[in-house]
Computed example of a mutant assay.
Amino acid sequence: MALSVVLFVVSATIHGGGVDDGADAVLGGGGVPPFGATNVLVLGSDKRSADTKEPGGSTSGPSRADSIVLMRFGGGKAARLSIPRDTVVDIPGAGRQKINAAYAIGGAGKMAETIESFLGIEVNHVIEVSFENFPELIDAMGGVVYRGGCVVSRINGGFRNGGYTLRLRAGKTTIDGKQALALARTRKNDCNPKESDLTRASRQQKITQAMRSRVLSPTGFVRLPWIAWKAPSALVTDMSGPTLMGFAAATVAGGSPPTRILKPTGAETLPDGGAGLVVNDEAKRRAVERFLGG
């Protein structure tokens, strides 16, 4: 156990410091995890793999946020709030757009600023999931056990376009790193074309729970040194090694609270003709109240 802690802190120190400079002016405050409540914004982007052949697929330059989740842990609090990427908001300095555009406009800092303006929730820290290294973290765990319905999806155009094709049968399946990443990113499921971003958020919650279960299992205990070494490399964050370790401890102590979704109350047509989702003030107020209450 002591070796795992040392490996975690050393790895976090080596891989830390990758959040964009603009985030420093926005982030801060909050408690000291695991003793005080801390709000952490977890982001994933929609950047394509470098060898994709998908028409129009971007492999460099600004990318939009693919997943947006607020987490509140520490000080006896435990809450998660997922914000659908198509939610329409006023992005400071950029006008009314879908919230995922904030990441392309100004990185994690602009996204944190937008969320603070939209919901009134202070963002203390940011974690950006590295899609390049996330599969290695899952593999370090020996895979995770996922329970869910049938999924057939083609990420970044599928195998034929340099992407990844995922096929999972309904029921319980042990999935590896590449499968877990593809599952988390799946938006269009050929097994159930009627699925929405709300379904996707539910799948991501199941993956998070599966990861937690694996870490706390006998298999996870044996593999803990490998997990501790790989975890920081899968995350880009403003948190130092000890702070990240404290937050990780807080999430374990906090259990597995349900990931609540900021549910839309209507739709809006944007100036460019695109359709987005809107959330009225009362729905936002209730969501924020539940989140802060932990």
Rank of each mutant, 00 (worst) to 15 (best):
Val32Asn: 06
Met239Gly: 11
Lys110Ile: 09
Ala248Asp: 04
Ala250Asn: 08
Tyr103Val: 11
Arg285Gly: 15
Ser130Asn: 10
Ser256Glu: 06
Val152Leu: 11
Asp90Gln: 11
Val252Phe: 08
Gln204Lys: 01
Asn189Ser: 07
Gly29Trp: 07
Phe73Pro: 00
Gly220Arg: 00
Asn192Glu: 09
Ala267Val: 11
Ala249Tyr: 12
Ala253Pro: 14
Gly274Leu: 00
Lys77Thr: 06
Asn133Gln: 05
Thr87Pro: 13
Thr174Trp: 05
Gly158Lys: 00
Gly294Thr: 07
Ala234Val: 01
Gly255Lys: 07
Ala65Pro: 10
Gly29Gln: 11
Leu277Pro: 00
Gly107Tyr: 00
Gly56Gln: 15
Gln204Ile: 02
Thr114Lys: 03
Lys110Arg: 11
Ala23Glu: 08
Ala79Cys: 12
Ile155Trp: 00
Leu168Asn: 15
Gly293His: 13
Ile227Tyr: 14
Val42His: 03
Gly276Val: 04
Ser11Arg: 10
Lys230Ser: 14
Ile105Val: 15
Thr199Leu: 14
Gly157Cys: 02
Val252Lys: 13
Gly31Lys: 06
Gly254Met: 13
Ser202Ala: 13
Ala283Gln: 07
Val10Pro: 06
Gly162Glu: 06
Gly109Val: 05
Pro84Ile: 04
Val151Asn: 11
Asp24Ile: 12
Thr114Asn: 05
Met211Asn: 01
Asp86Gln: 09
Ile115Cys: 02
Val5Phe: 13
Ala180Pro: 00
Leu198Ile: 11
Glu116Pro: 09
Trp226Ile: 11
